[in-house]
Design a protein around this nucleic acid. Structure first.
Lengths: 152, 152
DNA sequence: GGCGAAAGCATTGCGCACGATTCAATTGTG
DNA sequence: CACAATTGAATCGTGCGCAATGCTTTCGCC
């Protein structure tokens, strides 16, 4: 609103600066985070979204596709091919539920379960690499959650 | 290391909870931000990264591909096809510099410049839609910048 | 001037994200 | 029971993101 008058004069006036934008900062920070994970996850043959799926399955095995999607805020259009690749890599299996043949439950294989301890090492490697003090990380996490959780 | 013993008993012990992770919070928040922009940018025929490129060009026209990449933290593998689509949509033109034929400078067309005022409207629509108080948004932006800026 | 190294950009390949659509299976309703 | 509506997952098309590769151009250095 504040530049309403200036905007009416010439299009040169509406300077929306990139660096002022919260959304761009989030966009850049999220990609920075994934880049930090990449070299470590490469050794496990995982992408970051695949790692997140395993994280959810390690918490509780045998969840449905839509349950995974609820946790990760992803739909079947993203998860189905991702799960197919995890299946092809031998980390999970998928099977239609007998009680409701619409649902597909996702289960870890032994190989998928074995990655858990190696993934814990990934976490330890990254904890030391973050340049922000712990209290700022907590603030960043909580603010991000509130930002994202608002639409849920 | 703290769960090394427990880990040797059963793999159930290394619980890295998804919701505790800063990186997942950033990942989810960044996608939430893009989803907030999407319906508004759809009316302009833009994606969010395309909008960011135009934002940079509205600040200063005629920048090179690598200059845009520096601002947005994107490489030519991402920008080249994105710029080609903006070109095909008639919003920008690209031309090799005569002084240095390696460089390609990107210029707004009249149509690209006209989008500027409509984009300002997008900003105003979103400002009211964000559920966080302004001071929290500033905190989120600055923490995100520090998180991302550390690797620069 | 010649020539190897580096810069700048384009292309390719793969894996997300997401809207839209499709399809089977289930649920709800009369 | 019939049948319309809904649900759950898969598929498709488009557009990022990014590593790897290739190619032209420029620069550095002799």
């Amino acid at each position: 609103m504040r530049n309403a008058f200036a905007m009416s004069i010439t299009s040169q006036e509406t300077t929306v600066r990139l660096e002022d934008q919260v959304c761009f900062a989030l966009y850049a920070a999220a990609r920075t985070a994934q880049q930090a994970y990449r070299p470590l996850l490469d050794e496990l043959g995982l992408t970051y979204p695949q790692y997140l799926v395993l994280l959810v399955l390690w918490e509780q095995d045998g969840q449905t596709v839509s349950a995974l999607g609820d946790r990760l805020h992803l739909d079947s259009g993203t998860l189905s091919p991702l799960l197919r690749r995890l299946d092809e890599h031998g980390l999970i299996t998928r099977e239609r539920q007998s009680t409701d043949a619409r649902r597909v439950s996702v289960h870890l294989t032994a190989a998928g379960d074995d990655l858990r301890s190696r993934a814990a090492e990934v976490q330890r490697c990254l904890e030391g690499a973050v340049p922000l003090p712990p209290e700022d990380l907590l603030s960043l996490r909580d603010l991000s959650r509130r930002f994202a959780g608002s639409d849920a």
